[in-house]
Design a protein around this nucleic acid. Sequence first.
DNA 1: TGAATAAATAAGCAATCACTTATATAATGA
DNA 2: TCATTATATAAGTGATTGCTTATTTATTCA
Lengths: 109, 109
Amino acid sequence: MDYVYMESYLKAISDHNRMLILKYLSKDSLCICEFTELLDMTQPAVSQHMRKLKIAELVTEEKRGRWTIWSLNVRHALYPMLIHLLSLLPEPEITVESLEAEGKRVVCE
Amino acid sequence: MDYVYMESYLKAISDHNRMLILKYLSKDSLCICEFTELLDMTQPAVSQHMRKLKIAELVTEEKRGRWTIWSLNVRHALYPMLIHLLSLLPEPEITVESLEAEGKRVVCE
DNA sequence: TGAATAAATAAGCAATCACTTATATAATGA
DNA sequence: TCATTATATAAGTGATTGCTTATTTATTCA
């Protein structure tokens, strides 16, 4: 673990919207369209955040039909530290459950 | 601990030179002029890094004569996590001891 | 008082940031 | 085949980043 790697890892986390994304992912695997609802953000904005998280190896993706399901990369060396960090952050107001109540939760297939 | 506070804290850490500074400070309190030697960096560059760390409450300063002695802020809520993070990073090649050997270590007064 | 030293601040610059809107790609299903 | 849906990519924008050089402030000491 060198300084430059740690820098790019921390830079990937150092954004409140990406931290929110990671907080959600620590409970559920989710797709882009769900994040657009959860974060009230445009689809390209979410997509570009996911790309940054992916480049930093913080998340993994799994294509399923026309959806891409994103998950936390539990194999990452810094995964335990990430989980601890996320535990310090409050639960988001908009929950995946509230999305389900509105019928906006995507159930793939 | 809200998302925006965590973001500014992480952004303050997310620079390889500032991580080096913090790594050094985890062993010794040091002044700007020592960092210019340790990091091979200009004095204003170091000074501006210290200001960022200070704004994020990661470090404390103590004026002593014409020197300003910088230390890690051990009272910060995230200090334990910072120490853990720094422990994952390698020891810098240039050490405070090697500075002393060259007679470049400042002994205030 | 005045030279030397430590540190802070200012201004400028190229690179990167998080976003936007527009468009492209890819899969589904009528 | 063609409209719809999910996602990715492209291009542009204003703000911020980490540095630079130049200057200022503050302290020490001869």
